[in-house]
Design a protein around this nucleic acid. Structure first.
Length: 274
DNA sequence: TAAAATGTTGGGTA
DNA sequence: ATACCCAACATTTT
């Protein structure tokens, strides 16, 4: 679903305007919704007042959040499980899952498609109010292998749930955690405080490579949600149970870890080796 | 046919 | 601190 690479891809498309009209510089003239619960903060009526006639300055990303700084405050959107966000001209065909839309001063619409209705929209004067509990950005320069080591050793949790924890590391979801652990040849149940330096460096490298590869392929398109990416054709373990491992040829297995479907290679991701 | 599974976040409990 | 369960949903799979 929309994890860091998918959200990054969407942010870039909106910023550049998908080759047609860039979002920065556009004024929001109206917000329409058939699912008011999309708006988490502030109340729906205040929200409408706050964003009406505001000008979008840019489009960015933090963790899995899309950020739209305005000339006053900021619009923030989380896609959760099934959300997608795209620009369409007013006469464009209607996607049945578009429950909310921002109408722009040039007639175009920023449409929020969200089949499962888990998405959330925020307006705030201070983005920190929404983003305060997020861990480091894995692709930024200040996220070094040493930082990862310190944080891993400060906790004693299983790697899989820890890497999914957005306050530990921002932006990873079920797909990229499984792909990263496989690249690093680390078992999903391995305790974070038992990792040795070479393993941590492998994990650091694998996280960054998996995410960059995801972005390079414009993200992954799974099921019927989110289009335009093709990283799903390059998965090494996710949804690959029964397929041979690229490293060792063993059959990829599916298990459940922390209530999440988990794919790994029993041949090269072993729990109790140093 | 109905129940289970999917996946992100946040809330609650032990 | 850590693990577990649930709820918010729609759709597909079992």
């Amino acid at each position: 679903m929309p994890e860091l690479p998918e959200v990054e891809t969407i942010a870039r498309r909106l910023h550049s305007g998908q080759g047609a009209i860039p979002l920065p510089g556009r004024r929001i003239v109206q917000f329409s919704t058939s699912w008011p619960r999309h708006v988490e903060l502030p109340s729906i009526s205040t929200f409408r007042r706050r964003i009406k006639n505001r000008v979008i300055q840019s489009v960015g990303r933090r963790a899995k959040y899309l950020l739209f700084p305005l000339d006053l405050g900021a619009l923030i959107i989380h896609l959760r499980m099934s959300g997608d966000l795209y620009l369409r001209p007013p006469d464009a065909e209607k996607d049945p899952y578009v429950h909310s839309a921002f109408h722009l001063d040039n007639g175009w619409q920023l449409r929020f498609s969200d089949a499962r209705k888990f998405g959330r929209i925020y307006w705030t004067r201070d983005p920190q109010e929404v983003l305060e509990n997020l861990g480091p950005e894995p692709l930024e320069d200040n996220f070094t292998a040493e930082v990862l080591q310190d944080h891993l050793h400060a906790r004693r949790r299983q790697l899989k749930p820890l890497l999914l924890d957005q306050s530990f590391l921002a932006g990873m979801g079920n797909i990229y955690v499984d792909e990263s652990l496989h690249r690093a040849r680390l078992h999903p149940l391995r305790r974070s405080d038992t990792l040795k330096k070479p393993e941590i460096e492998r994990l650091w490298e694998s996280i960054r490579t998996s995410l960059r590869e995801g972005i390079r392929h414009n993200g992954a398109s799974i099921d019927w949600v989110y289009g335009g990416g093709d990283y799903q054709n390059h998965f090494r373990v996710y949804k690959q149970d029964g397929q041979p491992c690229d490293f060792c040829g063993a059959s990829i297995e599916r298990t459940v870890v922390g209530q999440r479907g988990t794919y790994f290679c029993p041949g090269c991701q072993q729990e109790n080796i140093a």
